[in-house]
Amino acid sequence: MSDDTAAKQAVLNRLRRAQGQLAGVIAMVEAERDCRDVVTQLAAVSRALDRAGFKIVASRMRECMTAPDDSGTPQLNEQELEKLFLSLA
């Protein structure tokens, strides 16, 4: 498995985990579970999504800054990448 394939699989696994956790949160709200339990699970979903985002940025950083888009320019410059990264925080 290549590094790109492994990174993609790791991201997909994290997103699927977050999807399952979110389904659990929805079920908890529907069942009127204790708010502390709901918030705890919601925080877990948020962390899972953050980790997936960080993994995407970390694994694709070099490509985003060097690989040209259809017009021949890099996909992102340093400032755009920094802004994207900070939006996850």
Results as ranks from 00 to 15, higher is better:
Glu63Phe: 01
Thr5Asn: 04
Asp34Glu: 15
Pro68Gly: 13
Thr73Arg: 06
Ile26Gln: 04
Val11Gln: 05
Ala18Gln: 06
Arg16Cys: 08
Cys35Val: 05
Arg33Asp: 15
Gln75Leu: 11
Leu76His: 08
Arg51Thr: 07
Ala31Pro: 12
Ala89His: 09
Met1Trp: 07
Ser87Val: 00
Arg16Gln: 09
Ser2Thr: 11
Ser46Gln: 14
Asp50Leu: 03
Val29Gln: 04
Leu15Asp: 11
Met61Val: 03
Ala27Trp: 04
Leu22Pro: 01
Met61Gln: 12
Thr73Phe: 04
Glu80Gly: 15
Asp4Val: 09
Asp34Val: 03
Ala6Leu: 05
Cys35His: 12
Thr66Val: 04
Ile26Val: 15
Ser59Lys: 12
Val38Glu: 09
Gln21Tyr: 09
Met61Asp: 10
Phe85Lys: 14
Ala48Tyr: 04
Cys64Gln: 13
Ala52Ile: 01
Leu84Asn: 07
Met28Lys: 08
Asp69Ser: 15
Val57Trp: 02
Met61Ser: 10
Glu82Val: 09
Cys35Ile: 00
Asn13Ala: 11
Gln41Tyr: 01
Val29Asn: 02
Arg14Phe: 01
Leu84Phe: 01
Phe54His: 14
Leu88Val: 06
Val25Gly: 01
Arg47His: 12
Arg60Cys: 09
Gly24Glu: 04
Ala31Glu: 04
Leu15Gly: 02
Pro74Leu: 02
Ile26Trp: 08
Leu12Lys: 05
Phe85Tyr: 03
Ala67Pro: 08
Asp69Val: 07
Met1Arg: 03
Asp70Asn: 08
Val57Leu: 04
Arg14Glu: 10
Leu88Ile: 05
Asp37Phe: 10
Ser71Glu: 04
Thr66Ala: 07
Ala67Ser: 01
Ser2His: 08
Val45Lys: 04
Gln75His: 03
Leu81Met: 07
Glu32Val: 02
Ala23Pro: 02
Lys55Tyr: 09
Asp70Ile: 05
Asp3Leu: 14
Arg33Cys: 14
Pro68Leu: 00
Met28Ile: 03
Val25Tyr: 01
Glu32Trp: 02
Gly72Cys: 05
Asp3Pro: 07
Asp50Lys: 10
Leu84Trp: 00
Met1Gln: 13
Ser87Thr: 10
Arg17Met: 03
Gln79Asn: 04
Leu12Gln: 14
Lys83Glu: 10
Pro74Glu: 03
Asp3Phe: 00
Leu81Asn: 12
